[in-house]
């Protein structure tokens, strides 16, 4: 393997774009875990619904003749975020809120149940076949090129799609970091995270804060769904499962409950997968990702950026 650096760069770009998808979904896991201490296993399905709303909107726009890509993309993103947020809100309202205060196990089982329910719901509505879409964004820019020994050229390029994914992810993560750290809503979320009852006694509407947390998580997952759709071009009712589990892994790797941890974890899992597939074998990329998770958890049980709970005596 010559052109080592170019190949490395290629894989890095792949890994970062893949990691963006995981990171966006992982934020939803981490926010919900932070505020109500439960793993929302249906979150992967929320991502899948985001992808489905995106494909439906794309095709509808195509029928309506709106094919100018930037406009179509914006409409798809807005639609997908709006519809998926409603799903996220409803999920919390219908399945989780009635169980608030019940043992954790009950909430966990419900989450798994909702995950299966949503999969079957989409399968019934949309059918079990994979849904393809034509490439929406094509072309790219050349980052660098070099001569290969056999006379050809090796071109490292950043496709426009990858660029858009990166920009979108950076913008969204910045916005959400600002929401969490600087706005009253974020402050209320952090307060509810630490002591829900006390927050209520200070006039914070805890139920609404939790609902908004689910809405935020769902909105981010839906963007990940849109990105997934235009990057891979095919989706089915089951895509939420593996991607959801990976994103959950990312959240745990980064330290569940920590927002920067989720982003970092997502990026790491994406990069590990890309490098493993690039240098070793594609078949074992999942093993690599989960193996790293196991290693990290052995040495840092709270994840990379998670703060250990110190009990003051």
């Amino acid at each position: 393997m010559q052109n080592t650096f170019e190949y490395f760069l290629d894989q890095l770009i792949n890994g970062v774009t893949l990691g963006s998808i995981y990171g966006l979904i992982a934020i939803g896991y981490t926010l919900v875990y932070g505020i109500i201490g439960m793993i929302n296993f249906a979150h992967g399905e929320i991502f899948m619904i985001g992808a489905f709303v995106s494909i439906i909107t794309f095709l509808t726009l195509g029928i309506m003749g709106i094919t100018w890509v930037p406009l179509a993309l914006v409409i798809v993103l807005v639609m997908s975020m709006a519809v998926t947020s409603v799903y996220g809100w409803t999920l919390e309202r219908v399945a989780y809120r009635p169980l608030r205060g019940s043992p954790r196990l009950a909430a966990l089982i419900t989450a798994i149940g909702m995950s299966i329910f949503l999969q079957n719901y989409v399968q019934l509505l949309q059918g079990a076949r994979t849904k393809p879409i034509q490439p929406v964004i094509t072309g790219g820019m050349e980052l660098m090129s070099s001569k290969m020994p056999d006379g050809g050229t090796y071109v490292v390029s950043l496709s426009y799609l990858q660029a858009i994914i990166l920009i979108l992810t950076i913008v969204l993560m910045t916005v959400f970091t600002i929401i969490i750290t600087r706005t009253p809503l974020g402050r209320a979320q952090r307060a509810c995270e630490q002591d829900r009852k006390m927050a209520a006694l200070l006039g914070v509407n805890v139920d609404r804060t939790i609902s908004l947390t689910f809405v935020m998580g769902a909105a981010l997952a839906s963007v990940a769904g849109t990105i997934f759709l235009i990057r891979y071009g095919v989706i089915d009712f089951f895509v939420g499962f593996l991607v959801g589990v990976k994103a959950f892994t990312a959240a745990v790797l980064g330290g569940i409950g920590s927002l920067p941890g989720a982003m970092l974890g997502g990026l790491l899992i994406g990069i590990i997968e890309a490098f493993w597939s690039g240098y070793f074998t594609v078949e074992y990329k999942d093993v690599a990702a989960f193996g790293i998770l196991v290693l990290v958890l052995i040495f840092r049980p709270t994840g990379l950026l998670g703060k250990p709970d110190i009990e003051k005596v």
Binding site: P184, R187, A188, A191, L202, G203, V204
Partner: peptide, 10 residues
């Protein structure tokens, strides 16, 4: 102290 003034700020 600021979280105690949440509703006004929200």
């Amino acid at each position: 102290l600021v979280i105690a003034q949440h509703n006004k700020l929200m």
